[in-house]
Amino acid sequence: MSDSNTTDFTNPSTFILLGIPGLEAAHVWISIPFCTMYAIAILGNFTTLLIVKREPSLHGPMYYFLCMLAVTDLALCTCTIPKMLSIFWFNSREIDFSACLTQMYFIHCFSVVESGIFVAMAFDRYVAICDPLRHSTTLTNSMVVKIGFAMVLRGGMLVLPGFLLVRQWPYCRTNIIPHSYCEHMALVNLACGDIHISSYYGLFVVFFVTGVDVFFIAVSYVQILRAIFSLPTKDARLKTFETCTSHLCAILAFYIPDLFSLLAHRFGSNVPLHFHIIMANMYLLVPPTLNPIIYGVRTKQIRDKLLHFFTHKGT
C-alpha cells in the first residue's frame, strides 16, 4: 500500500489514517491527555452504572436516562479512542475499508442517540417540575424503555442513508484520510464521484437533529423556568433549579464542542487542519469524560451514594 496514495484504484481494501497531520512528532505527547480522558470516561461511566444498579433508591426515570447516557458515552469514545491511541503509540495507521465505514456509522449514530437522550432528560425534568403529580404515571419503566428504544432507532435510521451513500461511492483518488478517525466528510472527500448528495445529507442530519433537539430542550426549559419563578420562596426556587443544573452543564458540554467542530469544518477554511482535528477529537472525548463528573458532583443522590460506597469499603 506504499504507492496507493495516488495510484488508480477503486474501493481500496484499507484506508490510512494520518492521526493529526502536521503534529506527527508530538503524537506521543498528545496521546497522554487523550488516554487520561479516556480512562476517566471509562471509570466514571462504569461507576455511574454500578451505583445506579446497586441502589434501589436511584431506580427512577432520571437515573435510567443517566444510565443510557453513560452507555452511549462509553460506546461513543470506544469507537474511536483505542484506534486513535494505536496510531499515536504504534503508528498503526491502516484500517480496513469495512471497519472504517462501520466506525463512521457508529460515531454518528451514537452522537444522534446522545442528543436524543438529552431531549428525554429535559422532558423528564419538565414533567417532574411542571406536573409532579403525574410524573410517576407518565414516565413509567415501560415508557422509559420505549423512549430509549426510539432514540436508538432514530439514530440508526437517520445515519443509515449517509452510510449507504458513502459505501457506494468509488474511491479512486487516494486512500489516505487526513484525520484520526473515519469522519463522514473526511471520507466523502476521498470519493471521485459527485459527492453533493452525501454532503447535503450530512448537513441535513446535523442541522435537523441539532435544531429539533435544541428546540425541544429550549421549550422544556422555558416551561421549567416559568414554573420555578412561580414558586413562592427563593429557597424553593434555588432548590428546584439545582435539580436541572447537571443536565444543563451536560448539554453545554455536548453541544458547544459539536457546534464549534461543525462550523470549523464547514466554514473555517482558514482554521489549521490540525486544530480542527483536535477539536473534532475533543467533541468525542469531552462529553463522555465530563458527564459522570458533572452528575457525580452536582447530583446529591449520586454524590452521597458514591461517598458512602467508598467510605463503606474503606471500613
Results as ranks from 00 to 15, higher is better:
S2G: 03
T10K: 06
T14W: 09
G22M: 09
E24Y: 03
A25K: 15
I30Y: 08
S31L: 06
P33M: 05
A41P: 00
L43N: 04
L43Y: 12
F46G: 01
F46D: 01
T47V: 11
L50V: 00
I51L: 14
R54Q: 14
L58F: 08
H59W: 14
P61I: 09
Y63H: 14
L69E: 10
L69Y: 07
D73G: 15
D73I: 10
C77H: 14
T78V: 01
I81C: 13
F88V: 00
F88K: 01
N91P: 04
E94H: 09
I95N: 03
C100F: 05
Y105A: 13
I107W: 01
I107L: 12
S115T: 15
A120F: 14
Y126I: 00
V127Q: 00
A128N: 02
A128R: 04
T137E: 10
S142V: 02
M143H: 06
V145Q: 11
V145Y: 12
A150V: 12
V152F: 13
G155E: 12
G155F: 08
G156V: 05
G156D: 02
L158T: 13
V159Q: 12
G162T: 12
C172M: 08
T174M: 03
I177T: 09
H179M: 11
Y181E: 04
A186F: 13
L187H: 03
N189F: 08
C192T: 08
L203S: 07
F204R: 11
V205G: 09
F207Q: 09
V212Y: 12
D213R: 01
V214T: 13
F216K: 02
I217F: 00
A227R: 06
F229Y: 13
T233C: 08
T233F: 08
D235R: 14
R237I: 00
E242A: 14
T243S: 10
A250T: 07
L252D: 03
Y255G: 00
I256S: 06
P257L: 01
L259P: 02
F260L: 15
S261M: 03
L262S: 05
H265S: 08
H265R: 03
R266D: 04
L273F: 10
H274S: 11
P288M: 07
N291P: 01
P292S: 02
I293Y: 03
G296W: 08
G296C: 10
Q301R: 03
I302A: 01
H312K: 09
K313P: 02
K313I: 06
